Measured scan of single mutants.
Amino acid sequence: LTVHVGNVTYHFDNPEQAEEWAKRMAKKYQGQIHVKDGQFRIE
């Protein structure tokens, strides 16, 4: 699973971990989480 934050990409084996990280990053950067094809993108 991949989480994109700006132009930085993080890889996770565990979906719960990826989702948790995406939520934390979205809160930190006050962005929206977009989920597409098993990838999380924070914008």
Rank of each mutant, 00 (worst) to 15 (best):
L1K: 09
L1S: 14
L1N: 14
L1Q: 07
T2P: 01
V3P: 00
H4M: 13
V5M: 09
V5A: 06
V5N: 01
V5C: 15
V5W: 12
V5K: 01
G6F: 11
G6L: 07
G6S: 04
G6Q: 03
N7A: 09
N7Y: 09
N7F: 08
V8L: 12
V8K: 12
V8E: 09
V8W: 12
V8D: 06
V8R: 13
T9R: 09
T9K: 08
T9C: 13
T9H: 13
Y10N: 01
Y10G: 01
Y10E: 01
H11T: 11
H11G: 02
H11M: 06
F12Y: 01
F12D: 00
D13P: 07
D13A: 06
D13R: 04
D13Q: 08
D13G: 05
D13H: 04
N14M: 06
N14I: 07
N14R: 05
N14E: 06
P15S: 11
P15E: 10
P15T: 09
P15A: 13
E16N: 10
E16W: 10
E16K: 13
E16T: 11
E16H: 13
E16V: 12
E16Q: 12
Q17K: 11
A18L: 09
E19W: 15
E19S: 05
E20S: 08
E20D: 12
E20T: 04
E20V: 03
E20Y: 07
W21H: 03
W21M: 05
W21F: 15
W21V: 02
A22D: 00
A22P: 00
A22T: 02
A22H: 02
A22F: 05
A22R: 03
K23D: 06
K23S: 06
R24P: 00
R24H: 11
R24F: 12
R24V: 13
R24Q: 13
R24T: 11
R24N: 06
M25A: 03
M25G: 00
M25R: 00
M25H: 03
M25L: 10
M25K: 01
A26N: 03
A26S: 05
A26Q: 05
A26T: 02
A26W: 04
A26H: 04
K27M: 09
K27P: 04
K27R: 11
K27V: 09
K27N: 07
K28C: 15
K28Y: 12
Y29H: 09
Y29E: 02
Q30P: 07
Q30T: 05
Q30F: 08
Q30K: 13
Q30H: 15
G31F: 12
G31T: 09
G31V: 13
Q32H: 14
I33K: 01
I33L: 11
I33H: 03
I33S: 03
I33E: 03
I33R: 01
H34C: 15
H34R: 10
H34V: 15
V35I: 13
V35M: 11
K36Y: 10
K36I: 15
K36G: 07
K36P: 03
K36V: 15
D37K: 02
D37Y: 00
G38I: 03
G38R: 02
G38S: 02
G38H: 03
G38W: 02
Q39E: 14
Q39K: 06
Q39I: 07
Q39W: 07
Q39F: 04
F40K: 10
F40W: 13
F40L: 15
R41V: 15
R41E: 14
R41Y: 15
R41T: 15
R41K: 08
R41D: 11
R41H: 15
I42N: 06
I42A: 03
I42M: 02
E43I: 14
E43K: 05
E43S: 08
E43G: 07
